[in-house]
Design a protein around this nucleic acid. Structure first.
Lengths: 328, 328
DNA sequence: TTGAAAGCGCTAACAC
DNA sequence: GTGTTAGCGCTTTCAA
């Protein structure tokens, strides 16, 4: 019961294997009748599926793209992964997902290995040095997610407007002393956020208290909460939603609650932010769209050799973690 | 600058490509000296990496396994995915991850497609009918995750002991009226849980109030909270951590808090449970170990054609969502 | 222990 | 439009 190959079909029909091959890979090159006949007998023989491996060997294209994420357990990434996969599946390319495992030092190495076995790359790596990234991806067409590096294609999320809205939201609630809990340095998105908020504070009627940097994690948030409590801030921008959770936990341990004692704004709108009590006011990014755009960018890159950076926008999502200011 | 192939090396050394091939794939079959020479010149030529595609075509083995998860955004899966990948990487096999996208109806279809392009499968599919699963995987060696089907290899997590401990824990805190918020039917793990707790209740000094079924989601938990409030229960087993979040939110909306008014036990110990305030008392499963065991099982299966089911154990993790009973 | 040669299944010039 | 003919780079008998 050998698998059905183009040879088997060709023999059955007394035609050339090449014609059968064309019927599947370049249907337009084959007369409609013949094509129909081929498909019919293929079906009769139990269904033909081109052997991808053979196709690969012959064309030199792998038919798969690599997707690198630094930490699959960070809830920010799964929705993105899903979106990339869904889009890739539509053009019949398989996604090889590599998880950095939170091990930043190893990222470059993993990306290099990945680059060797795919046609193109989609990379989310906020922390690895730009130069290293450029070297690691080498000549493999690459799209960066939520990060910009000169000369590379990318899909980024502009959170400026949303952050300004968040700031205004806090002002509207009466907050005038607001803490900015900075994330660790070296992350593109993080630096954008910090800058945006600091710029905003220079013109807004607000006393911005910049704290940190803190690790972008629950632990980091815990640490931040301690510092936060020593200030007069009545509201705070957490680096991301996970950090916000740590802040909430830290405040809780000090008998303070959100938003009663402190209003808190997260970032990313991960599942966490939605199911937490209180629901987290945060900045969402269009994950679906970003994943989809990344794949489209990559397809462009693969086809034309070039693709300009693309920008999407974040949005403020107001939930229950922000409330009216209360004297402390 | 063609890539370095066995032919290039062979020519350089004036030996047969076959020998070079053997030097890499069956080193024992080639004289040590020759082998050394081969490796040396390969290095000199810029480093040789066997072309996987060619190898695949030749051997018929793809060198990759498929990993199916029903919903990558469910925080239960990412740690598992990571563990499977880590283990697979150690034996140089790549993992093709397919996410069901919460679309149960489509699962079987996706699994079928996946099965066609890999050497083996690791499948987490709590809901798809056993028979369908058997058909879909066909002759492809398959390991089931956290589910048991007669005749298939699997890695399951026995949460019996942990659940009994959780029950005792609630008893120790003085709870006597305890609600069981059932998950939807048809999930293997869910049914195990329900049965275990119901069995326990028949012998323990407790009034078990079985509610549900509820969807295994935040929404499901919200719904459950409404029903819960109509009972006299002072504690509850939620189906999983996500559901527990919904319960907390629902209780909060009714001015009730955890564990002050109701004690709550989750299940799975996902990230959520750890970063929530209050931290969720829950049943953890050894994800790392399960992922690793699944790959080992699969390797056994691939090598011997057979592998017996393997069992791991869950553990009770006590955090802050359970506390002393309080009269209602 | 090594070499020669025949594939693995498909694609892509190039001719007809 | 279709057939012929080489490969793609590796593994694996079979002989030597």
């Amino acid at each position: 019961m050998g698998r059905v190959t183009i040879y088997a079909i060709a023999e059955q029909l007394q035609i050339s294997p090449a014609t059968v091959s064309r019927a599947y890979s370049r249907p337009d090159l084959v007369k409609a009748e013949v094509r129909a006949e081929i498909f019919a007998t293929a079906e009769k023989m139990g269904g033909y599926h081109p052997n991808k491996t053979a196709r690969r060997l012959s064309t030199g294209r792998t038919g798969s793209i690599g997707l690198f994420v630094p930490d699959i357990t960070n809830p920010f990434f799964p929705p993105l992964i899903r979106a990339v996969q869904r889009t890739a599946a539509a053009s019949d390319t398989t996604v090889i997902l590599i998880d950095g495992g939170q091990d930043t030092d190893n990222e470059i190495h993993l990306i290099e290995r990945l680059a060797a076995q795919v046609d193109g790359l989609v990379i989310a790596s906020p922390r690895s040095p730009a130069q290293k990234l450029i070297e690691a991806t080498g000549s493999v067409p690459t799209v960066l997610l939520d990060r910009q590096i000169d000369g590379m294609a990318s899909v980024i999320c502009d959170r400026t407007t949303a952050l300004l809205e968040a700031g205004q939201h806090l002002l509207d609630l009466g907050h005038r002393a607001i803490a900015l809990l900075r994330g660790t340095d070296g992350s593109w998105a993080a630096e954008q956020r910090t800058r945006t908020i600091q710029d905003w504070a220079t013109t807004a009627p607000v006393d911005l208290i910049t704290l940190g940097p803190y690790d972008a994690s629950f632990q980091g948030g815990l640490g931040a909460s301690a510092d936060l409590l020593e200030t007069q801030a009545t509201a705070a921008f957490a680096f991301d939603d996970l950090t916000a959770c740590g802040v909430i936990a830290g405040l809780d341990a000090a008998q303070k609650s959100v938003p009663h004692d402190v209003s808190l704004v997260g970032c990313d709108d991960v599942l966490l932010a939605q199911v937490l009590t209180p629901g987290l006011t945060t900045i969402s990014s269009p994950n679906d769209r970003m994943g989809e755009l990344a794949m489209r960018q990559l397809e462009l890159l693969l086809a034309n050799g070039t693709a300009a950076p693309v920008t999407t926008s974040g949005a403020l999502v107001v939930r229950q973690s922000t409330g009216p200011v209360r004297p402390r």
